[in-house]
């Protein structure tokens, strides 16, 4: 199978063509860096995305958060649910892990800014 995609790793937006069979990559063309290569392989077989959102703190304030690495695309909405049903401590600092191993993956939810 072949898949044509737009790389989302950086704002350059390379058009990449991936040829693959099942879980095996046959060829990747059009990328201009290694990260693009890795993205294209993932994108063909098991697409992943970084999720960014906000979480409420115990006192009801807002804290910006993200997944510390990309999570399977099909888990995005479940990941959002996990974020929206959790509460962060009010003294959370940027970089702190708030949920570790979300949805049984190796992905953590970390704070990306101060509580406001």
């Amino acid at each position: 199978m072949t898949k044509e995609l737009t790389c989302i790793i950086c704002p350059k937006g390379c058009r990449i063509k991936v040829e693959y069979e099942g879980n095996n990559i046959i060829s990747v063309t059009g990328n201009s860096c290694k990260r693009g290569y890795a993205y294209a392989c993932d994108e063909a077989i098991d697409p992943k995305r970084t999720v960014t959102s906000t979480m409420r703190t115990v006192s009801g304030k807002l804290l910006p958060v993200k997944t510390d690495k990309p999570i399977q695309k099909k888990l995005i909405f479940e990941c959002m649910k996990a974020i929206n049903t959790s509460k962060a401590d009010d003294d959370t600092k940027i970089g702190d892990i708030i949920l570790s191993g979300v949805l049984g993956t190796d992905v953590n939810i970390v704070a990306t800014g101060p509580v406001r």
Binding site: P11, T50, T52, P64, G113, P114
Partner: peptide
């Protein structure tokens, strides 16, 4: 940047993909 909580900032400057608040911080 404080309200731009999505990622995609700082790839050139820090070779990392940061969110807006992280870049500002």
């Amino acid at each position: 940047l404080q309200q731009c909580i999505h990622n995609g900032f700082g790839l050139h400057k820090f070779s990392e993909e940061l969110t807006g608040p992280e870049y500002a911080a």
